[in-house]
Nucleic acid binder design. Structure first.
Lengths: 191, 191
DNA sequence: GTCTATAAATGGATAGAC
DNA sequence: GTCTATCCATTTATAGAC
């Protein structure tokens, strides 16, 4: 059956992607070759071309997968309850997502891979994430566009500091709730 | 005279570094080769080894130069006057420094070059910057360690968003003063 | 779908003449 | 100090046998 074959193909594709993420985490986002990637899934380099058109196609699939993961996690966020609690949950989710995987952070949010540009389809996922985040924050009472921008900057900044300057620790993580309070206070000063 | 020769040597070294920064800005921090670098200063690759021990030594010199630039700019900051004004000046200085040069930002604050580790001498400059920043903020009334951490996260976050999502624009730059106010209000709520 | 073999280019780095 | 020549490793990618 062609269905069976397609399923196997997709499974191997995912296996390759998982291995690529592992290499990116251990050797840096650009610190691995197709030979290494193939070896880590028990193949030789040319066989990878059965599943991907080349290295940039692999980066593109990783880019799309990363944004799909983020989108799914935003979707799971509780949106009912006290606005402050909702925002704390959202802040923690974003913080964790960034800190968990520095390589993913670099691929999704910084332009680190020389010459790589995400495909239009993959980039559309990035736009979906921003749109969905905007909805969540609006539901919690943050509907001013500048509020969303400031919110994003604040929590990506905390996560970036944590990942770069205290990996494995909690020096910036501890500041999360306080940062949410600071933010909420400045958005509703007279309430 | 050996003095003349040493001066010429240092000048050429700097010329090479300037060219390396240009390549890093245009082709990405890791998107250039020693051949290209040599060509851009009118040399062939082997001649570079008269001035640097290899590519990582060039990255190391760039790393040190970047932190020296930042240290100098912190030194120029006005420290007298209204604390809020001092903090606004400091915030703007940091923001500009990061946004000006994405490649420099990646080299100094993110681990983007596979295998590269700054030398102890260069890394000492990074520590100097943090110490000096701590002094400036303390002079403006921010002496709690967590306050400094939150400050750093907030303004590197704003700068990173500006550089990544609105290069050449001012979407996050416009939020700077408001962010300082938010920060100051949360640090001195009952004054 | 996976392999061997290999192309074709590029990388950092060194030897030695000038 | 700069060069030519070259080494040697590595890269992505392709051709074609099985």
């Amino acid at each position: 059956m062609s269905d069976r074959r397609a399923q196997r193909h997709a499974a191997t594709r995912q296996e390759i992607l998982d291995a690529a993420w592992n290499l990116a985490r251990s050797h840096g986002l650009t610190g691995w070759s197709l030979r290494e990637l193939a070896a880590s899934v028990g193949m030789r380099a040319p066989s990878l071309y059965v599943y991907f058109d080349g290295k940039d196609a692999i980066y593109d699939a990783m880019f799309a997968q990363g944004y799909r993961q983020l989108l799914e996690r935003i979707g799971r966020l509780p949106t009912a309850g006290e606005p402050v609690e909702v925002l704390r949950g959202a802040a923690r989710e974003f913080f964790d997502f960034y800190v968990e995987d520095a390589a993913r952070h670099q691929l999704l949010f910084l332009r680190v891979v020389p010459g790589f540009e995400p495909s239009p389809e993959s980039y559309a996922l990035a736009r979906d994430v921003v749109a969905r985040l905007r909805e969540v924050l609006a539901d919690a009472g943050l509907d001013r566009p500048e509020a969303v921008d400031l919110w994003t900057a604040l929590f990506t900044g905390l996560a970036s500091q944590q990942a770069s300057n205290d990996p494995g620790g909690d020096r910036w993580q501890r500041l999360l709730d306080r940062a949410v309070d600071m933010f909420v206070a400045s958005e509703a000063p007279a309430t």
